[in-house]
Nucleic acid binder design. Structure first.
Lengths: 218, 218
DNA sequence: ACCTGAACACCGTTCAAGT
DNA sequence: ACCTGAACACCGTTCAAGT
């Protein structure tokens, strides 16, 4: 998908680089993200990128922060649990739409957008009147749920498209049945009948939110 | 740390390769794991490794499965929550002792040891008499907690050793204070006074286990 | 069946030279 | 201040040749 050669050459900026890199990773995955190819995509020399990003790692940090910027913060006026549910749903949707991002999220340092998002969650929990220890633990529980759940879910979703899922599952199941893992075989079968991951995401989130509420009032 | 040259050359096996690779990653991280260096460590030619592993990715899958094999399964006779707590604590300890493993866990296909572990957790939940939907969701919640929590925790622990943590935290905090993120600044301060991650791990696990119990009886 | 060095393809990044 | 091609260092893996 080469850029239109008649178009006047756009100035190379950090923002353009990050946006193009995110778009590329969305389609091909981060593993396929290569500096030479990215530069080509932008109609620039490879080394020009390094005038705007320090190196590839720092660039990926920037990409994660671009994604962080797409997440809706919990709304101010709402009851704290509805506000958290809405924001978590937004974060979940954003991470699902950038499938590479959840895994990077866990191992990159937070940039400005993500720091602001962290602060907004902590503010919501604090202003809900939860006890300080519950705010502290609850923050970890909630953020862990958002990215941990999404990573697990994407592991299942990330099957190559062309494959016959029936065959794949059948073969996998056959192996399990014959190797004395009946409960795992049942679980895999259950997965086949359940594609509404959004539902499970909020079911577990509610479990956590209600637990926090209960433990803070106790 | 070269191998003793007087020692008779040990036969190269898949098991020896995986063990050495795990030990290497424990010390230097997976990013530093390089086929040439690993072969050297084993006193073999680089290409000899490929007689026992298909390629580097498949080798890392094998490494994760070696780690999976170190985890204690939930014990049969115990009350289901105590059994799960003990097994989760074991998994947590194992993942902490192989700091690279949690991140790989989320993006590698499960090998035999991990499949057995998955089956054991599902069996425990099923035999506890929980409703099938609660087993299904609960399995995801528990496994998500174990690896998700550990990944987050290691992100904090993974600071380079030589650095002055006081200075680092102070500089980081300063930036936060002046950039209108008081709640995040407070949270970072709270982290400084809390190094007992094991406690928080079980606190959140209990929140989940109790929530499952309650929701299954409802 | 297992071992291995040479060679290849690929990729991040340094350098020196441009504007 | 920004751009860039050539070159270097590094690394996974193929190949062909050994035992």
């Amino acid at each position: 998908m080469a850029r239109n050669k008649n178009e006047p050459k756009l100035a190379l900026t950090r923002e353009r680089i990050l946006d193009e890199a995110v778009a590329f990773a969305d389609v091909h995955g981060v593993d396929a993200l290569v500096m030479r190819k990215l530069a080509e995509q932008l109609g620039a020399g490879t080394m020009s990128l390094y005038n705007h990003v320090a190196n590839k790692d720092e660039m990926i940090e920037g990409m994660v922060d671009v994604v962080s910027g797409e997440i809706d913060h919990p709304a101010d006026g709402d009851e704290w649990r509805s506000a958290m549910r809405a924001s978590a749903a937004s974060a979940h949707a954003v991470l699902v739409s950038h499938k590479w991002a959840a895994a990077e999220w866990t191992r990159r340092r937070p940039g400005p957008n993500r720091l602001r998002y962290m602060d907004a969650i902590l503010r919501t929990l604090t202003e809900a009147g939860l006890r300080p220890e519950v705010v502290y633990h609850g923050y970890h529980a909630i953020t862990m749920h958002i990215v941990g759940f999404t990573i697990q879910e994407l592991g299942y979703l990330d099957m190559p498209i062309g494959v016959d899922l029936e065959d794949l599952a059948a073969g996998f199941l056959g192996g399990l049945e014959t190797s004395n893992m009946p409960h795992l075989a049942q679980h895999v079968r259950d997965h086949a009948g359940d594609d509404d991951h959004g539902d499970e995401f909020s079911w577990l989130l509610d479990l956590i939110l209600d637990g926090l509420e209960r433990s803070s009032r106790a």
